[in-house]
Design a protein around this nucleic acid. Structure first.
Lengths: 250, 250
DNA sequence: TCAAGCAGCTGGCTCAAGCCAGATGACGTA
DNA sequence: TACGTCATCTGGCTTGAGCCAGCTGCTTGA
């Protein structure tokens, strides 16, 4: 199987470091000649490596060994009261700045909405009416999109506060506003899965082939053990990792 | 672009439910005829959908809409003392049985070993000598492999107990044995990322195309806030999800 | 000196044809 | 009835050809 042979050979060269991150691989036509196959076969070999997330293609330019970007590590401490009060920064901004990069968050829409099934279930609200405020956010590091987050807030929680009306959350950001309204973040539930991005996600997050997304369904729980907010994060897996540190409970 | 057109059309049929989960799609040759293209193009279209994780191929049989398997949800409570004492089952077994499936765990090797860099760092042991016991486990649900786990235990923690010698951990399983030796699991750190599987992982976990893996680097921390065990889990993302519920700490 | 333009690289995608290999079911034989 | 065989489905993979489109750097002319 020529394509496997080529892929195995190239994978080995990458593993050994002959082809370091960022390295430009021989062109498809040259590879084909080197291995005495058709160009299609060389392309197939490279596509195998792309599916494995080892290489990436640039139209008109060539194939490159994927560079391992520094991962953003979003930890459980991102909800810590201390962190929030010390820095005044949102957890995302804090993490990006720590890595010397420039953070940007775009709030692209705020509107009453019908919640998805799971969200309605987690919040205990009506899935069949516009029972929540939906806030959509896009997160950038150095103008590179790295994650999206859609927050759902029950109408009675948001009221007519900035939570329901404004992109600008003011000092202390989102959770400070919840606290203002009597909801103190006490616990979080985070349900995590991974999958390949939809075409829309891949486009909006500027993702290349062979990169999955991490999906985090986050539920914020207050001092009375009641959920008051759900956010679904969709994160590029090549630029995001999660880091939880938590006590064992009985 | 014919292949995109075919992919878009099929994706839409799947989304609408015309092609329900498990449905057998028209053969490549038939698709090509239906859309008046070459067979190659039909194959390309199906491959696009496979990368998105929507369909799957069976050699000699056909292309099928992927069925969404019930996810195993491995929660933060999997380390709970209560759970362990009530059921006497390992967290994995408990979860699988809850779903009415049959669990199996194979311990494929136990041996002294040099730890990988990250592991040595998390444990604070020497990365350049055989400073840990390495235990490799494979986890099955209904004889389908769903995850692998490699546990690293510092030599002085394992001693010559069953931790270093035996696949069979006895009642209460792994963490009961740690507790016997004075290490009481008090906190865990879990670092999570997602990526495409290596060819070896894909083969051993019997994974089909377009499915990523979740990688969890788990560190067990004792009553003195010292790490005593690290496990790297590699889990099929189509059969595993994580469900954490934790308090916010200051 | 500088910039416009073009040649010749690169991948993107398609075609038509062919042979191999796994799966499956009908059919005929024991 | 039970089982093996085989025709004929299915995907797996390769070939070699061709045309389009993005990128890059050299050349040439103002």
């Amino acid at each position: 199987m020529p394509s496997r042979r080529i892929a195995d050979e190239l994978r080995e060269r990458i593993r050994r470091g002959d082809y370091p991150p960022g390295f430009k691989l021989p062109s498809e036509r040259n590879l084909a000649a080197d291995f005495s196959t058709a160009r299609n076969t060389a392309t197939a070999a490279l596509s195998i490596l792309q599916k494995e997330g080892l290489v990436d293609r640039k139209h008109g330019s060539g194939w490159y060994v994927r560079t391992h970007r520094p991962l953003l590590r979003l930890g459980s401490n991102r909800y810590s009261h201390a962190l929030r009060e010390q820095t005044g920064l949102s957890p995302f901004r804090a993490e990006v700045q720590k890595q010397g990069r420039t953070a940007r968050v775009d709030c692209t829409s705020i509107a009453p909405s019908r919640p998805p099934e799971v969200v309605a279930d987690r919040l205990g609200v009506d899935p069949d009416s516009e029972s929540v405020i939906r806030r959509e956010n896009w997160y950038y590091a150095d103008d590179e999109p790295v994650q999206a987050g859609v927050t759902y807030i029950p109408l009675e929680v948001a009221g007519d506060s900035v939570l329901a009306t404004s992109a600008n959350m003011g000092k202390g950001s989102l959770y400070a506003r919840f606290k203002d309204r009597g909801y103190d973040l006490t616990r979080v539930r985070e349900e995590i899965c991974a999958r390949m991005p939809t075409p829309e996600e891949a486009e909006r997050l500027q993702m290349s082939g062979g990169v999955p997304v991490l999906v985090v369904l986050h539920t914020g729980i207050d001092q009375n053990n009641k959920p008051f907010e759900v956010t679904e994060f969709v994160m590029r897996a090549d630029t995001n990792a999660l880091d939880y540190n938590m006590p064992i409970e009985d």
